[in-house]
């Protein structure tokens, strides 16, 4: 990846983080932590890797993005707004009655490819899409973002088995390994493994697996490029991340997993993101 592209992606990640704060609004609970930790991966996917067209959201050869950890959709909402799938102003109406942007993603929203929110199902949806693409002889790929605590769901490993069985080299999973669940530290509460452990699990399931710095847009991009060259296997890119990344008081804690913002915390967050 060249320097100019990397710089552009870093700016887009800031835009996404700003959009997350917009979507959180004031006085309503919202998922800051997991949205922020995934923001750089979302930026690389939408502004570098994926073949998508906001003017033609349903174009048949587009790549598909599935936010399996649906609660982290706020960053995806921001990217979609920035790309022009709907006006940026929609973000502030997130989670209001009759609003376009629901608490968890729904395919009625332009740019959203799958309903998620119940954890552990997105990778299976991706397997289904990849099987369909192969049947159609189509070249599009599927990118699924999961959490790390989400990997506690058995269905994830059923999907991992299916993807390897069917040699789905059109499937990528990006794991947001921030080490924190809804209730605390993954390592202390219910250990699904750290980034290396998670990568080892995927490798043992027959996947191409790689650990990256999940906030380094170049590393993420390079790993995604490398995955395109892997044949006969799905790829897992495990991003070592910080929950709440970019907002100091929300970093590395579950306190902002799902919490409302005040005037004060909002101002501080925006200043830090864009400072």
């Amino acid at each position: 990846m060249d320097k100019a592209t990397a710089e552009k992606l870093r700016q887009k990640a800031k835009r996404i983080r700003t959009g997350i704060i917009e979507a959180l609004g004031l006085g309503k609970p919202g998922h800051l932590g997991g949205s922020m930790s995934a923001a750089d991966m979302v930026a690389v996917l939408y502004y570098y890797k994926m073949n998508v067209d906001p003017k033609n959201p349903k174009k048949p050869d587009r790549d598909r993005f599935i936010m399996s950890k649906g609660h982290s959709v706020l960053g995806q909402y921001a990217a979609l707004a920035d790309l022009g799938y709907y006006p940026w102003e929609e973000l502030s109406r997130t989670k209001t009655l009759g609003g376009l942007l629901q608490g968890h993603p729904e395919i009625s929203t332009p740019g959203i490819e799958a309903n998620t929110g119940s954890l552990g199902q997105g990778l299976s949806l991706g397997v289904g899409m990849c099987l369909a693409a192969r049947r159609d002889g189509a070249a599009w790929r599927v990118f699924v973002v999961t959490g790390d605590a989400e990997l506690g769901e058995g269905q994830i490993w059923e999907a991992a088995t299916a993807a390897a069985n069917y040699k789905l080299d059109n499937l990528r999973v990006l794991v947001d390994a921030n080490g924190i669940s809804a209730m605390g530290r993954v390592a202390d509460r219910y250990n699904v493994g750290d980034a290396d452990g998670i990568a080892a699990k995927f490798a043992a399931f027959g996947w191409n697996a790689k650990v990256v710095d999940g906030h380094d847009v170049e590393e993420i991009g390079d790993a995604l490029d490398a995955a395109d060259r892997v044949k006969g296997k799905p790829s897992a890119i495990v991003g070592r991340t910080v929950k709440g990344k970019g907002v100091s008081f929300a970093e590395n804690t579950h306190a902002y997993h799902n919490k409302d913002m005040s005037e004060e915390t909002r101002a501080k967050a925006l200043a830090e993101i864009n400072g």
């Binding site: 605590a149 989400e150 669940s181 809804a182 209730m183």
Partner: peptide, 24 residues
Amino acid sequence: DLCGGTQAIQVEKGKPESFYEMGI
């Protein structure tokens, strides 16, 4: 992984030996 929402957290805090975190 939802003991805050369910309030089973009260058992985790008050009598941790009777509580099992089962993850997601």
